[in-house]
Amino acid sequence: MHPAPSVIIFTSLSGLGFGLLFWMGLGVLAPTGWVAFAFFTIAYLLAVGGLMASAFHLGHPERALKAFTQWRTSWLSREAWASVLALVTMALYGAGLVFFASRWAVLGYLGAALSLATVVTTAMIYTQMRTVPRWHNATTPGMFLSFSLGGGALLAGQVTLASWLLPFAGLALVAHWVMGDRALAGSGTTLASATGLGDRGTVRSFEPPHTGTNYLLREFVHVVGRKHSVTLRVIALLSGFVLPVLILLAGAGHVLAAVAVLLHLVGVFASRWLFFAEAEHVVGLYYGKR
């Protein structure tokens, strides 16, 4: 799949933002006054900034409200609802902490649940795609959720939580790679089944339908060099998870904690780039590109 910057930024940042909101809603940290204001500002910048970035991906952003109508069937529509409900609920909860120095616990729990639900709906948009075998398994929501919880805990300054959750997220990432690398072969979809000609012999793409490129090739057929992919995987794992955990375990102060957050962010971006770039859409088979 084409690794579109807007979608990589959106899923990475909003995942972190909603993770932070989740821990605040649970009351794991319940700052008040200006400190609360600062935390909520960061969470909202990440969550809303991510959502805005994804809107740039649309052909007709001005019609975005229509995306709220099909929640019965569409995960994208459910994501729209979950994110808006989570943001509104957490804004009310945040107002309590910032202006009244009081923690309205029930509202917080509700907001935490909605924040997590948002991350699940985002993950399900990808997981549901049977056409992309690498995404169509439990490691996708596993990775999105553990990233959000681990990264959120890191942002929230929860050293113990983060040093438990981040290694878990790293494992989820490795599981996603291991399962993903054999997913296309395991899906049973091949050029033989795509053309229905497999029982007559070996099928080979002889001539594509067009001499130039087209939307399908641009959007769905992205081939990452093997060497590139290994390097990026190492960066994603080290920078996103191993180093931040080591820093936390070494007993970091504020400055080093900020470094850990930045390293984590770099790792998340790298892994999200790979998530898209390495994903093989079955339509590539028709072009002999798998």
Partner: peptide, 26 residues
């Protein structure tokens, strides 16, 4: 007139039967 051009339907089609129009954005 309802399409926001998110492209998700083209992702979901295994056959490459849908193409986003670059000019109309639908």
């Amino acid at each position: 007139s309802d399409c926001i051009g998110c492209g998700l339907c083209a992702w979901a089609c295994p056959y490459g039967a849908r193409e986003m129009d670059p000019t109309a954005g639908v």
